[in-house]
């Protein structure tokens, strides 16, 4: 759900790149945070809560509320609303407090 033409703003987009969400390829633009790129692809559920396993999305988009914690390249508790996407990045929904990746 990207905005096409806007009456006031011109959006300068970075290069189009590909990263992975739950193993599936997703496109985004360099400079965009993970949560924004996922949202553009229609993905709103970013994690499940610690106690009740409730779905969570982002809320503040400025790294202040912890609603958007995700697992990125095996590292849990990454603020997906302010962390920019990188080509090939592996992003997963976090369950509870997150697990440490064991290869």
């Amino acid at each position: 759900m990207r905005i096409g033409k806007h009456p006031i703003l011109d959006f300068k987009k970075g290069t189009k790149i590909e990263f992975f969400f739950e193993g599936q390829p997703v496109e985004g633009f360099l400079g965009e945070p993970i949560a924004a790129a996922l949202h553009a692809a229609g993905i709103k559920v970013l994690r499940h809560s610690v106690k009740l396993d409730r779905p969570r999305g982002f809320f503040c988009a400025v790294g202040k509320c912890s609603s958007c914690l995700m697992e990125v390249d095996g590292v849990p508790n990454v603020f997906s609303c302010i962390t920019p996407i990188r080509p090939g990045m592996q992003v997963r929904r976090q369950k509870g407090r997150g697990r440490i990746a064991v290869n």
């Binding site: 759900m1 990207r2 905005i3 806007h6 703003l9 959006f11 987009k13 965009e32 945070p33 924004a36 949202h39 553009a40 709103k44 559920v45 970013l46 809560s49 409730r54 779905p55 969570r56 999305g57 982002f58 809320f59 503040c60 988009a61 400025v62 609303c81």
Partner: peptide, 25 residues
């Protein structure tokens, strides 16, 4: 109120006016 889709107004503004992405329909 904890469901994905409940957003702060500032967050909606950031998504929309900084990144050019619609928060929803």
């Amino acid at each position: 109120s904890d469901l994905p889709g409940v957003y702060g107004a500032g967050a909606v503004q950031t998504l929309m006016n900084v990144y050019g992405i619609k928060p929803g329909r």
